[in-house]
Design a protein around this nucleic acid. Sequence first.
DNA 1: GGAACTCGCCAC
DNA 2: AAACGTGGCGAGTTCC
Length: 462
Amino acid sequence: MDTSPHSEAAYRLMHNGILAIARAEQQGLRVDLEYLEQRKANLTSKINRLERKFKASDFYRHWEHSRGGRVNINSNAQLAHFLYKTKKLEVEKETESGQGSTDEETLRQLNIPELDILLDMRKLKKVRDTYLEAFSREQVKGYIHPFFNLHLVRTFRSSSDHPNFQNIPKRDEESMQIVRKALYPRPGHQLMEVDYSQLEVRIAACYNHDQQLIYDITQGDMHRDMAVQIFMLDSFDKSNPAHKVLRQAAKNGFVFPEFYGDYYKNCATYMACNWGKLPPTKWKPGQGIEIDGAHLSDHFIEKGIKSLDTFINHVKKIESDFWGVRFADYAAWKDRWWKTYQKYGYIDMYTGFRCHGVMGKNDCINYPVQGAAFHCLLWAFTEIDRISQEENWRTRLVGQIHDSMILDVHPDELEYVVKVVHRVTCEDLPAHWPWIIVPLEVEIELCPVDGSWAEKDEYKIK
DNA sequence: GGAACTCGCCAC
DNA sequence: AAACGTGGCGAGTTCC
């Protein structure tokens, strides 16, 4: 696969975009050096404590004995050998190359308490070595200057490195807090993140013009609808925590994977086992997460779904309804797009980029959506950079994460900056590209003045 | 002693 | 028939 700017406008977007990004790279983000050193030391002592505890266990002694004393507890290859060859445990999951897996999910399922210690160590080491250590290594005079590459990604998204600013922990509360507490604005400033809501889904709708999808974006809630269908709910109560979990499961376990090209079997298994906490076999009463005073297995059994296999079958029917009825126009677009590629050997993005080379069907569907979505962000980023330069803002752009941008804001300029950012992202951009036929929205999060990036909070646009 | 590989895990 | 898209990076390991 090879993608290239195929029009003058596409070239200009890259040219102007790289200049705006270079300016953000030069600005950088402040890191708290004292915090970094303290936190790394603190994590090291926690890791050492866990290591001592692990090494005092019978499990470790057995492992050590089996290797004549030469154990590296960081080596998953050695661990896999010990678990699956020495102890002869059953391999539930294999890696790409056919080795027994030692990923978190697999180790948890083995129900060996010592492995939980190992997993706790893994998590702390990830935070210390991948994030905090990288910030220390890359900082110059207390500022990191992450790079944002426009020329490395197949889909013409961006990537980031030295350090990578686009994979900083967010979902895991503890990791998120530890890492983001290292990042600060300039003295007297505050960090702000402007995030396009559902950008890729909206751009997909611009390609396929599916009326149901457009309805869902503007007025509906497809994740709720799919949760009701998949989990056979009689009603949906958005204040019910269990219903919220099921909506999340439908969103991240079915809707998004289906949009990316996954299929019912993976989706069903992932939803039942990961979100529902059900075993991958026949289900008995009292299993799985709690829902409406009972357990998920009770609920499913009552509805006639008594095992993972029957659930997979159920999700199979939902998938054919999803693509055959609900999003039939979307599905027809996918077929047309694939046929076009097969006939001509390339496909064009709406932003003037051409994808050619060897592509599969999923690639033909995903690349133009992912690429054009990022181009929206890049256009807005470039425009905001231009305005900030012309008007001599003290506020500056400092980074970007595919569908969001990060600014280091001077509090006196906050309201004005929000106004300009909102206008550029939600009004100027759709005016610039007439193929954008759905409304665009942004969410804004703001940190306190002199507060760290861990203290982000929703900011209501006035 | 470095390049290239695997595995696991972080983000969108 | 096939079956999840895009990255970066650390640690271990293997190859040259």
